[in-house]
Amino acid sequence: MKIKVDATKCIGAGLCVVAAPEVFSQNEDDGLVIVLQESPPPHLHEACREAARLCPALVISFDE
C-alpha cells in the first residue's frame, strides 16, 4: 500500500490521526495532514482504509 494525500484540500479535521496515528499526524501550525509512513506495513492497512473513509475532505487515497 502506498498512501497519497492532497494536503492542499485538507481541512484539518484530524480524523485520519484518530484512525491511524502511526501513519498520519497534523501540522502544529495549521492542523493539516502529515503522512508519517507513505508505505505502511500490512498490519496498518485497514486503519489507513478507515482514515480514508472518515476524511470529510476526501484527501486520502492509496494504491494497494
Results as ranks from 00 to 15, higher is better:
Lys2Thr: 11
Ile3Arg: 09
Val5Asn: 01
Asp6Trp: 03
Asp6Thr: 02
Asp6His: 07
Thr8His: 04
Thr8Glu: 06
Thr8Ser: 12
Lys9Ala: 06
Lys9Met: 11
Cys10Ser: 02
Cys10Met: 01
Gly12Leu: 04
Gly12Gln: 04
Ala13Tyr: 14
Ala13Gly: 11
Gly14Pro: 02
Gly14Leu: 10
Val17Lys: 02
Val17Gly: 00
Val17Trp: 00
Val17Phe: 04
Val17Asn: 00
Val18Tyr: 14
Val18Ser: 14
Val18Cys: 11
Pro21Asp: 02
Glu22Cys: 08
Val23Ser: 04
Ser25Pro: 10
Gln26Arg: 10
Asn27Leu: 01
Asn27Ser: 03
Glu28Phe: 04
Asp29Arg: 09
Asp29Tyr: 10
Gly31Phe: 13
Leu32His: 12
Val33Leu: 09
Ile34Cys: 07
Ile34Ser: 05
Ile34Phe: 03
Val35Ser: 01
Val35Glu: 01
Val35Ala: 01
Leu36Met: 03
Glu38Asn: 14
Ser39Ala: 15
Ser39Ile: 13
Ser39Asn: 15
Ser39Asp: 15
Pro40Gly: 12
Pro40Gln: 11
Pro41Tyr: 08
Pro41Gln: 15
Pro41Trp: 12
Pro42Gly: 07
His43Leu: 15
Glu46Gly: 10
Ala47Phe: 08
Cys48Pro: 05
Cys48Phe: 11
Ala51Phe: 07
Ala51His: 12
Ala51Thr: 12
Ala51Gln: 07
Ala52Arg: 11
Ala52Glu: 11
Ala52Leu: 09
Arg53Pro: 06
Arg53Tyr: 10
Arg53Cys: 08
Leu54Phe: 09
Cys55Ser: 08
Cys55Leu: 04
Cys55Glu: 06
Cys55Tyr: 06
Pro56Met: 03
Pro56Val: 04
Ala57Thr: 02
Ser61Lys: 07
Phe62Pro: 03
Asp63Gly: 03
Asp63Asn: 09
